[in-house]
């Protein structure tokens, strides 16, 4: 009988663990958000985190966007040529970049950079007693470490995605005009004629949510880390893995919600 029930018990443990973890992260996020509306506010720390996310992620996000736009133009041209629909390349590039690839790829890149960095920094502070030290110095660690980073991530990602959208479209334009034989004016006209405000706005909404997820998982993993250097390493890995998976899963949910008819 036990043998029959073992898999059921294991499944139960998994589900309970998952629910417990989700609840703990939700409470962590709620506490951090509550600190955003209660003084004191750490503007200097917000600015530092914002520059770290928005400015220093710019090169990696820009390169990713340019090459994605270029590849997208090449691939869609190859595919559409089979149906004599090459003219739709500009439309496909701009739609794919603004709605999906801009926010998702920028999110994944920033998850690798910022999620890991925040988890490592806060995790090291945890294992070296710096977080306890904050508490003894009349400073709430959630307010000081987590809240400014969450706000910075939520506001910085949409800005990065605006850059990614622009450069992604320009990457497609570059290949379209230099390699695929489109006229520059015609390519841009096709791009902007087809583009709707909702396409860009939906991408920016996704970006804000992804920014929140990345910084939340980075801070959460670091805050809860323990066990010395190995623990910090685990926190860093779990921050990147969890935020990447969540970005992809939440992207589906947001797409279903934003574009449901």
């Amino acid at each position: 009988m036990d043998r029959i029930l073992d898999p059921v018990a294991a499944l139960g443990r998994l589900v309970i663990g998952l629910l417990r973890g989700t609840g703990a992260i939700a409470l962590f996020a709620a506490e951090a958000i509550s600190h955003l509306v209660r003084p004191p506010f750490y503007g200097r720390l917000f600015l530092k985190a914002f520059i770290e996310i928005a400015w220093f992620s710019l090169p990696v996000v820009a390169l990713t966007a340019v090459f994605t736009g270029m590849v997208l133009a090449l691939q869609s041209y190859t595919g559409f040529a089979r149906f004599n629909a090459e003219g739709a390349v500009a439309n496909v590039v701009v739609l794919s970049i603004t709605r999906e690839l801009g926010p998702v790829l920028a999110g994944l890149m920033v998850a690798g950079r910022i999620g890991a960095a925040f988890a490592a920094e806060i995790g090291t502070m945890r294992v070296t007693d710096q977080i306890d030290a904050l508490s003894t110095l009349s400073t709430n660690p959630m307010k000081y470490l987590v809240a400014p980073r969450l706000l910075a991530g939520t506001l910085a990602l949409p800005l990065l995605v605006i850059v990614a959208d622009t450069l992604g479209v320009m990457g497609g334009w570059l290949i379209g005009t230099q390699q695929l034989g489109f006229g520059s004016g015609a390519y841009l006209k096709a791009t902007f004629d087809f583009l709707q405000v909702a396409d860009v706005v939906s991408g920016l909404i996704k970006a804000a949510v992804f920014g929140f997820i990345i910084t939340l998982m980075g801070c959460w993993s670091g805050y809860r880390s323990g066990g010395g250097a190995q623990g910090v390493g685990r926190a860093t890995t779990s921050a990147v893995v969890a935020s990447s998976i969540l970005i992809l899963a939440v992207d589906y949910v947001l797409t279903a919600v934003l574009f449901s008819r």
Partner: peptide
Amino acid sequence: FQNGALFD
């Protein structure tokens, strides 16, 4: 604190 716990 034992190890100082200074903010890096």
